[in-house]
Design a binder for these strands. Structure first.
Lengths: 257, 257
DNA sequence: CACTTCATATCGGCG
DNA sequence: CGCCGATGTGAAGTG
């Protein structure tokens, strides 16, 4: 039997089933009327109501209401689950250290408890990620611009690793920042940090990070260029790109949108 | 009866129960052997295995394995759930528009199905958020620095609303950026954007965003100051704060850690 | 709607 | 274990 299920169990029955399930390493689903409290990185309290509590053998705990993709309360993997009957209620506690945090669920009534043996694949094949975008660019560098030559991915810098480093048709160093979706100003800031770090590393004067310094329009170009590759950018991001003298290349992770 | 539960149902039985549950607006929990595919913002495939599928009346769908806080696949609230029996399997499809995306779960065998009527509170009382940190500072501005006077929260600027705007003991404008936990360089970039926008708005020359311009050490101070309030900062963030001439104030959302 | 920012973000990779 | 950045991030607030 891969699933054990009890309907409207007493707290004692529920406790036995829970402890057996923990022992077996089963995935547990508990539904009933409960209150929830959390203390750790923050603190929270949730009044009485019907919720679905999922306890995973890796230590994860999820409290779900009838709304939202996110659990209303949770505990990350690596926690330890314990159960007991106290003051006429079934108490389930999940806690961990580093950081210290504890989730406590107190059931006044359990309406359904299921313990399930889980087997089978967990490996998800995902397509359309930033890595796909990088692969696409390495295979067809001209999509960034004619004459672009990638030299290195994850190239280290004083500001962290840059997505793609290369040179343009003139041999000028180019820092490329990749985003799989439409981006805001933060991505431009990220690109700017890498460009700045590389300018310092190469001892390039550049024209700095400020707009309107006056020596960009015309002949003097920055000696390290920044290119943001993303499907699209917000207006604010576009302004900031212009300020910094960076380019935007509209490109999706996959050939079609 | 607030919970309907069936063990090892036939696909037909499961389908009836599912359709009834959708009709009633119940929360559904389905466990069994299945494959999962998604297509939308990205695309993914997941081979056969035992998983827990949760279907919420608000349109959210969650596929959970025995590991991780996050569902291995999901569909956001606002989606529409449909079920059918096709090719000897129970097929559950959840889809939405804007963006167009579809989650498909195909069960070769359903081992447990529960439909649960959910009532009761969803309102979580949370403490320790950034808003708590703001409240703390507004009540005790001296925690930022002696003589600090908050003037406005969420003050608009060309770079978006700043957390707290005020003046220091000398009457110099101060932009305060709040973070509830330890921060990296991105937070400094965010603060820098606000400071810069305010300098432009006030027509202040300032000393720019670049370090080493030479006119900071000594008499000439920036005419708009930036202060980052957070429990702690990373080394890289500290460097960047120093570059920009910004201050860090170590403070937690709540009086104790 | 789009844009921006917060989150008990979670998660993975690297040093 | 801390730092850093990606995520089909999600969710809230605002214009």
């Amino acid at each position: 039997m891969t699933v054990t299920s009890v309907h409207d169990p007493s707290h004692r029955e529920a406790l036995w089933e829970l402890e057996d399930a923990f022992e077996r390493g089963d995935l547990v689903s508990l539904f009933g009327r409960c209150t929830v409290s959390y203390e750790g990185r923050a603190a929270s309290d949730l009044g009485a109501g019907d919720r679905l509590l999922v306890l995973k053998p890796d230590g994860a705990a999820l409290v779900h209401t009838d709304e939202g993709r996110q659990p209303v309360n949770w505990q990350p993997p690596g926690s330890e689950h314990r159960a007991a009957v106290r003051e006429g209620r079934l108490r389930v506690v999940s806690s961990r250290t580093n950081p210290d945090e504890t989730l406590t669920v107190r059931f006044s009534a359990v309406e359904q408890l299921s313990a399930m043996r889980v087997t089978g694949g967990r490996d998800l094949e995902l397509h359309g990620s930033e890595e796909d975008l990088r692969t696409r660019i390495l295979e067809r560098p001209d999509l960034v611009e004619p004459g672009f030559e990638p030299r290195e991915t994850e190239r280290p810098s004083g500001a962290g690793p840059m997505d793609v480093f290369g040179v343009d048709a003139d041999g000028t160093p180019v820092v490329v920042e990749l985003k799989r979706r439409r981006v805001g100003p933060d991505a431009v800031g990220q690109l700017a940090r890498y460009v700045r770090a590389l300018r310092e590393e190469l001892g390039v004067e550049g024209d700095g990070d400020l707009e309107g310094e006056g020596d960009r329009d015309g002949e003097s170009a920055p000696e390290v260029r920044g290119v943001l590759v993303a499907p699209s950018v917000t207006d604010r991001a576009a302004e900031r790109l212009a300020d910094r003298g960076f380019a935007h290349v509209a490109l999706e992770p996959a050939p079609d949108g």
